[in-house]
Amino acid sequence: MLFVLVVTAVLTTFYFAYPNSSNANTGEKTFLSHNGAVIKTTGEVLDPVYSAQTLEFDPDKYLREFNYGRVSKLADGTTLREFTIIAEDDKMMEISPGVFYNVWTFNGTVPGPTIRATEGDLVRIHFINNGARSHTMHFHGEHPGEMDGVFEIVGAGGGQFTYEWIAGPVGVHPYHCHVMPLEEHIIHGLYGVYIVDPKDGRPQADEMVMVLNGFDTDFDTENNFYAANTIPFYYQHHPIQISTNQLIRVYVVNMVEFDPINNLHLHGNLYQYYPTGTDIVPSTFTDMITLSQTERGIMEFSYSYPGKYLFHAHKVEFSEKGWTGLFLATDKE
């Protein structure tokens, strides 16, 4: 009896102390990681490499997708643009390989759809709240007080509200939920981009939207992940394809919370920068801008030489947590 007890105790001790020793090795594999490190292992790789197949949110699609709404003309000739936006707050999204986070969404994605209108258009947004919490839509820009999405709380479970205003001023603006506690509603993903084009338009360009965002997955008021367009390291593995000698226009909006600043550095080039996009004359020619919360602007540049060019936060912590990507510039045939 005593002997059996002792043997059991000893075996248990060894199980807890060295439980892995019984696992047989099944051949070593070699992997190349996202930063070029070579990993040899018999196990699995932990590397935020994303393949497009498993992705619920497609940063490539989001990058160049602009929503102009359902367009109609009013009697006085004004263009009416109608949008339907549905808020939800129960979705678990894989925001980095294997990491799941409860995102709160406008039309199912973080960021929400990019809403685009021309200065002077009538914008009408049918907002439906299908979430379990109250939500609103608060647009930066000019509009009447009762269209501000602050005091007109839209109730959970199907509450509705129609926002309406004349688009302006020209520029790139964020929109986001404005229900208290505000930080919680923003960091879960209730934000997006709203672009107002000048009446005469801007020069033809390859246009794209970049929302700089982060996720605090362990709720310690510090971001665990950063990205341009939600998925960490995405554009590092899926370079943004551009052509040399083509004007590139990036609408960039900083939605990172907790960290007072974010920034954007472009390699091998400098860009004309239009803060908030409200002017048609650039204010600086630089390769580095610093952005505070909801600070935004328009970048314009073109590459003369083909090649791979990095863009990333020069707050390197952010880039090492996912906010980094590549432009792949090729000559047009």
């Binding site: 990993i39 292992t41 196990g43 912590e317 090492e320």
Partner: peptide
Amino acid sequence: NDRIQPAAIEPDK
């Protein structure tokens, strides 16, 4: 040091 690094895990994750 709170900076994401590629890694491997054995026997599995």
